[in-house]
Amino acid sequence: MSVNLTLLTVMGALYACGIYLILERSLTRVLLGLMLLANATNLLILATGGYAGLAPIFDKDTPAGDYNDPLPQALILTSIVISFAVTAFMLGIIYRTWVLARQDEIQDDAEDRRVAETPSFDAEDDSVIPAETSEFPLAMVGSDGAGTIDKATASAPAPGTGNGTAAVMSGDRPVRADKAASEEQPGSLNVDPSPEGGEE
């Protein structure tokens, strides 16, 4: 099969420029890059048809070898239509990005960024489970109150939440035993901070 060198050179140049452009961050350039790639591919398909020949309209005097191969041209026609539609859609998207963000740049994925910045420490899975040094866990001594203060404040995983302190300061305002017993952890929101006298 013989090919046209000019066509091939142009095709190579188009591919090179196209690939360079789609690596850019500006959307318009990416679009231009995609268009160049599509057209370079059309040239490639054209090249597979071999040398230019006669129009493929059957004539019984013409030997079969003189005709041009019509199939690549049919393929190119289809691919031109498709890339036309995609280009139009991309233009729509670019315009929409411009309307929304006032910039012609590819945006970062916020969720991706967030996951990337998440520390490997996960409060729920990895935090130290407070060691029970007492035979009597918090829930059991709730009615007493006084004995719970130190341990509870030390083991609270998230310091400084308002509810947490209200629950733990059971020295001043003793939390009812049944309330305390229903708790899994001191910082939980289910604690009713003002069973009595919380309105101060």
Binding site: I22, V30, L100, D109
Partner: peptide, 17 residues
């Protein structure tokens, strides 16, 4: 919407390539 357009750009470009 903004997030969908952002996601759409990635999707369209990769698919076209």
């Amino acid at each position: 919407t903004g997030p969908r357009i952002r996601a759409g750009v990635t999707y369209v470009v990769v698919s076209v390539v």
